[in-house]
Each structure stands twice: as structure tokens, then as C-alpha cells.
Design a protein around this nucleic acid. Structure first.
Lengths: 190, 190
DNA sequence: TAAAATCGTTGACCTACATCAAGACTTTTA
DNA sequence: TAAAAGTCTTGATGTAGGTCAACGATTTTA
């Protein structure tokens, strides 16, 4: 289990010197059931987590209280709201598991310690956070395309997403209704 | 000029020990004219910049080549694509000045040096980047609201934006046509 | 395992915003 | 400072996707 995280660090910082023992010391495994929440609007993000197995969705609540998915995460992704985690301020993001999920979690305090202690973990964190920012911006711009284009792009990027995520959730992510997605599928994949 | 950046650091990291001399050593002032680009898709972001005076827009190109604004920046904002800057990879973002603008710029190398050297600058950078990520996510979700709601929210957040940014640019940011924005204004502000 | 809830699909109808066009006003350029 | 280019506004018309409703299929719960 700890190896999965270690591998991920190695992938991003090939020259890493980080030891498995460190990971075991700083991270705690946690199990969550499908539909459980990892994070809810208004709470402070006390832990960050790395997905060993399972998946989740991030969503926000619109002014009318509608849930709008902002993204999904699978194995080898991090979850937790960086802003809330770093500044220990209430989050605006909700994170809910879509399958039973195993995480490696780390507290904010441990994370800070590890950042100070390990130059390589600093690099790793830096790298992940910088690419996360870009991803958000790109997603954003994607919304200027038609729903049909956005759907195609999504399928190109994650061909297997339909095996794991329900149409309702995908529709929310594309910011269209499930009905519209249903019609899209019918017309586009003959 | 350097004081403006120093003040901004102090605002975010009250206990800072950073000296004006350091700022003067690591940052270089630069002037840009209205319509000049700071960053173009495909190039690597060699500098980050802090706006002393002026403003800019970030935009991306949709698949059909249309420019879509992702945000504006004014005095006391940073510009530059974090992802491209940190990883020295080509950016997907375009940054263009909407007024004659004065920046304090720092090279990627100097930025790395300063991060290693100054614990306080590390905190400062961390804080800015984490809030930037959140801002993107929230903007994203905002698009699920109607154009009219998005416009109202924008005006609440930046009441003076209309004095500095043209309707065409605001429309692109709201992801509607200038015509639609014109009609919105007429109907909403009687 | 029966009942209840949720999901995917389809049809009928509606609305917010896009597109195209054209004129008045403002800013930039030579 | 005159010409050219870009901006704002308004009108007429088109369309992608929303809303509401209904039904069978699947999943969840008791």
C-alpha cells in the first residue's frame, strides 16, 4: 500500500531519496464507504489523502443549492482542498466517495513537517500543486465549447470513465442535465 | 516601487523578516505597453511578475481559435503561469496587458533561489498559490449560474471593473457575447 | 425478497443566449 | 485632424439545452 505512494513520488521526482519508512511514519491508512464524505463545505480540511483504491467526486453548491461536480479522482490522485489545508480556513468544496475507497492520509501538521524535512517531498508537492492549478484553468475554458465537444474531450482523456462514473455524475461535471447527456450519447455514438 | 511588493508580502505573512534589499536584488522592473503580451501559448514562462501599476487579462484559445478570458489582474497581483514557470514547460495561457503596465519581474532561477533562501517567501508563495487554485475552482462552478447571476456576482466582487475593463472583455470573461451583455445591462440596471 | 428509491431514456414544449446585420459613437493611427 | 478601426447598441431570427412528465430497468434498503 505504501509502495503505491512511493512509486508516485518517484514518478514525479525521479531522483528522490525518500524512504518507505518515512511514508509509513507520516501517513495513516483510512477506509471510506461509498457515499461517505471526505470534506464538506464550511469545514476545515484537516487531512490530505492519497487514493490507493477507489474514486471520488468534488462538487460545489450553486447559489440555488444545486450540486455541480468540478472533477473526479481515482487511484494515485490526491484529495483535499489545498487552500483550506494550507491556511486552515473553511473550505467551499465537497468531496464524496463514489466507491468504497482506501486512502493514505496525512495531517496538516505532519504535512508541514515533511515539507520542511524533505527537499524531495517539497519538489513533489510543488509539482502536483502547480499542475493542479493549470488543470482548473483549462477545465474552465473548456466550458466555452459546446456540450458535445466537452463530452468528446472528456472521453478522449478518460476513455474508461463511463465504466466507473454514472451518467448523472458525468452530466453534472459537463454542466448539462442527464437528459441532455442521454441525447448527446444517442446522436454521437451511432 | 519595491515597497508595494514588500507591503504585499507583509500583508500575507505578517511576521516576515524579508528585507527591501533582497527584493531589489532579486526583482527587476519592467514596463509594458497596452496590448503587449506577457505570455503566449506554446512559450515557456521565464518570468513571474508582480503588478505595480496597470492591468492585464488571461485568455486561452478555444478549439475554434476563439479567445476566452479566464481572468483579469490589477495592482498587487501576480502574473505568469505557475505550471509553466515551475516545470519550465510550454504554457497554454495567454496574458495580454489592457493598460500600460509596470511590473516587478523575477526569473524562474531567482525565484527558486529565493524560495530556498527565505522561509517567509516560501510561506508567501504557498499562500498565494493555494488561494489561486481555489479561485479557479470557484470561477468554474460559477459558470453553472445564469449569465445574469454571474454578471451580478462579478460586479459585487469588483464594483469598479467597468471603469477599467471594456464590455467586450467582460463579456468574454462571462462567456457570453458582447450583445448579450449589452442586453443584460439594459434589463438589469434600470 | 419485496418495497422503495434511483437511474437512464424518450417525448413535448420553452427560453436564454447565439448569430447576423446595421447604425451611432469612440478610439487609434497615419 | 481626417480616415480607419474598433466598440456599443438595437432588431430580427435561430438553436442548444433546460424543464416537466412518464415509464421500464437497476440498485438500495428494510
Amino acid at each position: 500500500m505504501y509502495d503505491k505512494l512511493l512509486d508516485h513520488i518517484r514518478q514525479n521526482v525521479p531522483a528522490t531519496s525518500i524512504k518507505k519508512q518515512i511514508i509509513e511514519e507520516y501517513f495513516t491508512p483510512k477506509l471510506f464507504e461509498k457515499k461517505e464524505h471526505f470534506l464538506k463545505q464550511g469545514y476545515i480540511c484537516k487531512f490530505a489523502g492519497f487514493v490507493i483504491e477507489g474514486c471520488y467526486r468534488n462538487y460545489i453548491l450553486s447559489t440555488e443549492g444545486k450540486e455541480v461536480n468540478t472533477g473526479f479522482g481515482f487511484e494515485n490522485w490526491w484529495l483535499g482542498d489545498v487552500s483550506s489545508f494550507v491556511n486552515q480556513t473553511p473550505t467551499l468544496i465537497n468531496t464524496q466517495f463514489l466507491e468504497d475507497t482506501t486512502l493514505l492520509t496525512i495531517t496538516a501538521k505532519n504535512h508541514l513537517d515533511l515539507l520542511e524535512k524533505s527537499q524531495c517531498f517539497r519538489e513533489y508537492t510543488n509539482k502536483l500543486r502547480s499542475t493542479a492549478t493549470t488543470a482548473s484553468v483549462l477545465k474552465l475554458s473548456g466550458l466555452s465549447e459546446s456540450a458535445s465537444t466537452r463530452y468528446k474531450v472528456l472521453l478522449e482523456k478518460y476513455p474508461k470513465i463511463q465504466q466507473r462514473i454514472s451518467q448523472k455524475q458525468i452530466a453534472s461535471f459537463l454542466q448539462i442535465t442527464p437528459e441532455a447527456l442521454c441525447r448527446l450519447r444517442k446522436s454521437e455514438i451511432p
